[in-house]
Design a protein around this nucleic acid. Structure first.
Lengths: 136, 136
DNA sequence: CTCCTTGCAAATTTTTTGCATGCTA
DNA sequence: TAGCATGCAAAAAATTTGCAAGGAG
């Protein structure tokens, strides 16, 4: 797992520092979290990462599209950073787990609407709130 | 227009105060805006509304589903508050105009995915970033 | 007239910046 | 090593809270 996290970060073109690996793992466990949530989670698990560092790491991860920013200000890991186009996220409001999927049909629908109104699409994503099987 | 803004607020079950009407009109003009943007816009247009009031009004409008919260923390008016289910927003990154539409196909796709993974959907919306005709 | 809203003051919390030091590639 | 990353201190900005006064229905 350690290995994998490191690879993910490297492949995105970033240096795999301890802090970055830890933060990615934290988000992975939390599902989705605010900068504060992440800092707190890390603090509870032995080490400790500076608040400023958390912000800067999130900024870096976002820049290389390794994470999604949700509407409530929290972030979640992008599980398919290489897949371009639409990303849809099923976000469980109970446990905060975020499951992502790619849907070609949604892309097409969005594209059709954009085209008919002359809108040029740069990015699009869908956030779905609800309750997952575990929590139901 | 004044009349309409008032009706929109009333129909949502809120008291139509001067501040609420002004804020709704501000967001309408701005397309999408942060609490600060709204306060600034209003200040530039004669009157002045307290920062705290802006926050509380946004909170109230959100509660009755009269506005959307975007991923960058800004808000936009919901142009179809009565339509339940999916809301898709075309957000122009140049002029900040937000055009909303409802798409049954997207709903179906989302529903299909949710069903297959046992996820119970409460709400979902799509945010599309790009450039509108006016700005292209 | 009653209850919801607003404004004001002030506390909190969140986010940003500059700079010296530390650590990856 | 060279250059990016982190920590620390502190500033700036955003958001929240309590309470008295104001306004809508």
């Amino acid at each position: 797992m350690q290995r994998t996290t490191e690879d993910i970060i490297r492949q995105a073109g970033l240096r795999a520092t301890t802090q970055r690996k830890t933060i990615v793992q934290g988000i992975e466990v939390l599902g989705c979290a605010s900068p504060r949530d992440i800092e707190t989670w890390i603090a509870k698990h032995g080490v400790s990462i500076n608040t400023v560092t958390v912000y800067r790491v999130l900024e870096a991860l976002e820049r290389v599209k390794l994470l999604h920013r949700l509407r409530d200000g929290r972030v979640s890991l992008c599980s398919m950073p290489d897949t371009h186009g639409h990303h849809a996220m099923l976000h469980c409001t109970q446990c905060d787990a975020v499951t992502e999927f790619h849907d070609e049909r949604i892309c097409k629908s969005v594209g059709a609407h954009a085209k008919s109104s002359g809108f040029s699409v740069e990015a699009h994503n869908t956030e779905i709130l609800g309750v997952c099987t575990q929590c139901a």
